Each structure stands twice: as structure tokens, then as C-alpha cells.
Simulated scan of single mutants.
Amino acid sequence: MTTTRATAQDEPGLSAAIRCRDRLRALAPGLAACAVAVALAFGIHALLPSLPAMTLAVVLGIAGANVPGTAAWVGGAWQPGLRFAGKHLMRAGIVLLGLKLSLGDIAALGWQALGLIVAVVLLAFAGTYALGKLFKLPGDAPLLIATGFSICGASAIGAMAAVRGTKHQDTVLPVALVTLCGTLAIGTLPLLMHPLGLDTVTFGRWVGASVHDVGQVVAAAQTAGTVALGAAVVIKLTRVVLLAPIVASAGLWQRFQRIRGSGGPGTFPPIVPVFVVGFLAMIVLRTLGWAPPPVLDLGGLAQEIALGAALFGLGSAVRVRELLHAGPRSLVMALCAWALIAALGLGAAWMMA
């Protein structure tokens, strides 16, 4: 009797262990593919620094999903791990992104610069959202694209998708568009520096105020030297801080709309997702100086690996044939939004001088 009772009591634990083992086995092939892709992206970036590793990760994901030799794996054995990376590793990357931000560096910009950056983000967000509605993009696409373009690319899209409860597949087009336009900025903005008569600091501020992803900002700004790079990174990270209030505002608005529509409180996604709270906690940790340099270095590396794996996973959901069929209107809208934020960022950069 004692043995039988002990075995019965152990069954829930054994069942959980078996489920965990089976889950890990299902995730392993896709996560291994992510690891290989991230290593390859970093390797290419080391050889060609002008190509951001995060952009390369998306491109590799798109290639893997559309090349006949690997498309079957992406749609088959790799899929659970790729979906896990696109959702959960994206959130881990957002949390660790907070370790790159210090409120002291941001405060050193001064109130005028801070006001201009906030204005650029809000105007870019509102303008891009309006363009998305004007071009009749479906579902949450206008909101996701506006968030990605105005704040910090794919990371912001992932955070907004979480608070909106957007399906994974509906984030694919916004991520593809923000990656495409950010890559376009890397090649275009440096060519315009001298025709526009910009000095290195003003150019760096322009890049930081108008390019989408942190890696893309670094790739574009470093073409003008370390002074431009420093100015660009501080401006860009100030935009990233606005991720939390923008996401929280969207969460509150969604809750208000649902309550008004249903007449009751109902069940909603959290106003601020847990991983965004973690992002804010990492900012505080960095600001207070509680994280020593080795921890910051390790956190930065982990953030890039997690985000690279997530972007490879998201890229692997892009089917070029479907994108070409459904994407021309979206592409024109994204290019209009890219021109808008570039103009807003340039105006802010000139006013900061």
C-alpha cells in the first residue's frame, strides 16, 4: 500500500517532467537553427560591419523559409522552436535592452533636446498610424508599424503585440517592413550628410532620431566617426525609453474600448506586460550603477543573441510569394512613413544644434 501510494503521489511530478522533456525535444531543432543563424549573422557582421547582425538575422530567416532546401524544415521540425524564439526570446531581449539605458545619460541631453525627441516620437507614431489607416492596412498592422518606426523597430513591435494580444503571424509584415526601411536608412542617410551640410554631431542626432533599430543606428552613424556614433546612440536610447509609456497607453486604450463595447470589465492583456516591467527594472539597475561592467557586457551580448534568434524566428514566417501578393500597398505606406520620420528627425537635429 505504501509503495502504491508513493507511486500515485509521484505521478503528477513524473507527468510534468515528461511533458517538459517532450517540449524541449520539440523546441530543440528550431532553437538549434536559431543558434546557427545567429552565429552566421554575427560572423558576417564581423567581416562587414556596415551590415547589422540583427538585419542579417531577419534576412537569414526569410531565406530559410523560402529556399527549397530548408523551407520544409522551417515549416516542419523547426517550427515550434522558431515560434518560441519569435515570442519568448524577443521578450527576453527587450528586458535585457534596458541594461543599455542610463537615465543620467538621457538627462544630460537637456530639456530642449528631450522635448524634441518626445515630439519626434509622438508625431512619427501618429503620422505612421494615420498612414496605415489611410492605406487601409488590416488589423493591428498600422499600430504595430507605427510603434516599430517611431521607437525601436522589431523590439517595439513585439512589445505592442503582447499588450494588444496580436497573433504571432500578424507581426510578420510589420517586422519585415521596419527591417527593410531601417536597412534603406543605413545606405541613404550617410549619402545625404554632405549635400545637407550636416556636421558630424548633427548627422549623428539625425540618425538617432529617425532610424528604427539600435543596430541600424550604429551601422548608419559609424560611417561619420565616433562623435556621430555617440550622439546617435544617446538620442536613439532616449527614444527606446518611451517604449514603456507608449505600450502602457495602448493597453489602457484597448481596455477602455473593450469595457465600453462590452459593458463590463472582462479579461484583458496586462496594461504593461511583465517583460516591459523587467525592461524598466534593468534601466533602474543600470542608472543606479548596481550592475558592474562585466555584467553589462554579458547582458549586452545575451540581449543581442536573444534578439537575433527572435528576429530569425520572425523572418522565417515570411513567405516572399505571399508578401509580394499582399505587400505593395504596405510597402508604399512604409516608405511614406520612413520619409516622414526622416524629415521629423532632421528637423529635430537642426533645432538641437
Rank of each mutant, 00 (worst) to 15 (best):
83 R>Y: 07
85 A>T: 04
85 A>S: 13
86 G>F: 07
86 G>P: 07
86 G>W: 07
88 H>N: 05
89 L>K: 03
89 L>A: 04
89 L>Q: 04
89 L>G: 01
89 L>N: 04
91 R>M: 07
92 A>T: 10
92 A>L: 15
94 I>P: 00
95 V>W: 03
97 L>G: 10
97 L>R: 11
98 G>N: 00
98 G>P: 01
98 G>D: 03
101 L>G: 03
102 S>L: 12
103 L>R: 02
104 G>W: 14
106 I>E: 00
108 A>Q: 13
108 A>K: 08
109 L>H: 05
109 L>F: 08
110 G>A: 03
117 I>Y: 00
117 I>S: 02
118 V>I: 14
120 V>N: 00
120 V>P: 01
121 V>R: 01
121 V>E: 02
122 L>V: 15
122 L>S: 11
123 L>S: 12
123 L>H: 11
123 L>Y: 04
125 F>K: 05
125 F>L: 15
129 Y>Q: 15
129 Y>M: 14
130 A>P: 02
132 G>R: 00
132 G>P: 01
133 K>W: 07
135 F>S: 09
135 F>Y: 15
136 K>I: 09
136 K>Q: 12
136 K>T: 15
137 L>H: 02
138 P>V: 10
139 G>N: 11
140 D>P: 04
140 D>L: 04
141 A>Y: 05
144 L>S: 03
144 L>Q: 02
145 I>T: 12
147 T>L: 08
147 T>I: 05
148 G>M: 02
